[in-house]
Design a protein around this nucleic acid. Sequence first.
DNA 1: GTGAAAGCGCTAACAA
DNA 2: TTGTTAGCGCTTTCAC
Lengths: 318, 318
Amino acid sequence: MVNERMVDLGFTPNLNAQRLSHGRTNLVAIDFGGRRDYLADLFFVEIARVIQDELDRRGYGVLLSGPGDVLTRWVKPQAVDGVILVGVLPGGVTPDEIAEAGTPCAVISNEPHGPTPGVGSIVVGLESGARQVARLLADHGHRDIAFIGSDRPDPVLSAFRVSLEALGIPLLEERVAMTDASPRAGARAICDLLRQPHPPTAVFARTDALAGGVLRAAHQMGLQLPGDLSIVGHDDVPFCELTEPPLTTVRIDCGEIARLAANVLLSLLDDQTAAPPPVTVETRLVLRSSVCAQWRISPAPTQGRDEGLPHRDACDGG
Amino acid sequence: MVNERMVDLGFTPNLNAQRLSHGRTNLVAIDFGGRRDYLADLFFVEIARVIQDELDRRGYGVLLSGPGDVLTRWVKPQAVDGVILVGVLPGGVTPDEIAEAGTPCAVISNEPHGPTPGVGSIVVGLESGARQVARLLADHGHRDIAFIGSDRPDPVLSAFRVSLEALGIPLLEERVAMTDASPRAGARAICDLLRQPHPPTAVFARTDALAGGVLRAAHQMGLQLPGDLSIVGHDDVPFCELTEPPLTTVRIDCGEIARLAANVLLSLLDDQTAAPPPVTVETRLVLRSSVCAQWRISPAPTQGRDEGLPHRDACDGG
DNA sequence: GTGAAAGCGCTAACAA
DNA sequence: TTGTTAGCGCTTTCAC
């Protein structure tokens, strides 16, 4: 009765007092591990947005945890009720540490965590997409295949290699290039790869940013795409449908991943003792136009296709 | 002495109690106004990241305010010490409302706010870039120029039109297309534009996403770029250097903008009564390869260039 | 229904 | 330096 009046008169309770007395903050920290992945950022927007949406609806606020340590900055001081860890970096906080501190935690990563009480694990099934790429390239007659990546170890590379080998196609060590994650690095890598005596007819780039660089370099060299070189990316960032040709790539369903993460956390928030099993979201191939059939008969290893490539010097440009 | 022992023993003070007693939260809300601008998202990542960096360094946490009302959700309940408003949407909260509620506020928007005590205003000077585009196209001999946008009123469009007219080039009403913000819409718009009896030789797309659609459509129509059509985008999102040809566009320096916003807020946090003058960050042209000289003599209005365009039907594709 | 009182964990002011 | 006490503004409990 009296309370209703107060509300009507525009009274707003002090959240901090509420939190202190009630013992819960209705705040969740989201920790991106201080990564700065160039275009992969697009993931994070999507993930942050969906998580924010989902949690906001249930009355939770979202705190952007900085590059510092979530544990000491937010968890220990009891400033948040839960944490979402996006990716687990070597040397960073582990979900178990957070859960042990009494705060539920959802992790998004490449590998399953738990089941452990208080931690929910969303696994990005990177292998499926990689397998599909292997099959796609094999089905299109490619035998000389390259890979451009930037991390070791990389589950995508492993799955790609294994799948290729299962199809009777070796992924030669000189055809896997490891660089940094920038488009420029991708451009340089493909140039080196094509300069080899026995150049690849198809390349799988670990990220779309890298693939973008490959595309750029290929155009500068005057190659016909995808005729002279088939290209597959990874991540399916929005610009993939705008490249020339539109990029065939592997899609990571960030929306789904974020939704699942938010929801395990929410359930953990209701019941701290629950130990939900890991949930996997598989990546999958998205077909566009940057891959085509390769019917050329492989030349003898000694003579290569090398002299056929125009504008070799474009490689050092950018 | 005793205190030191507590710290050593791993004691962490309860933030909520601290906040209640100390009267400050060391939290800042950042409000993106619930926008979902497709690729323009890239801005937000950059802005969020820089703001987070800058504030974190000074001991402030960053709260992602959701699509709801910052005022009632965070400001009134005294859950944050300050607010950063990114863009001011019609019908949304105004910086003055927030300042009047006793919470300092920094705004990033197209137009100056204040000076008002408690609000800092960072202005994105959209006109400069637009002017530079007008001059660029004029200098390259273009006289038949189109614009593809998605908002009205749009300071970019106004400045572009005025600058063009000052150079003796009218921006005909039938050459400005208003659509939604997707690349697909851009593709459709350019198709319509090129179908006109007297088609443009250059087009200024209000966003890079739109420009991406234009690029796509142009390729599908078999146009030579930039020979047959010069294209300028706006925003300079990272993929601009990966398109074919790389996109000439207008750069918005998000990092600088965010840094300034964070810093006015910080100074306002120290002195609530300050009324700093608005600060403008000008946009500027970034030259790449999607614009070239136009030496073709304008044909008589009645005959047009229409029949010269191959693959007209590509327009409805995607 | 309403009012009074204790306590959430800290800070700040004062006394020892 | 250290101990004590009174709030900060709410929730919860227990009377009335």
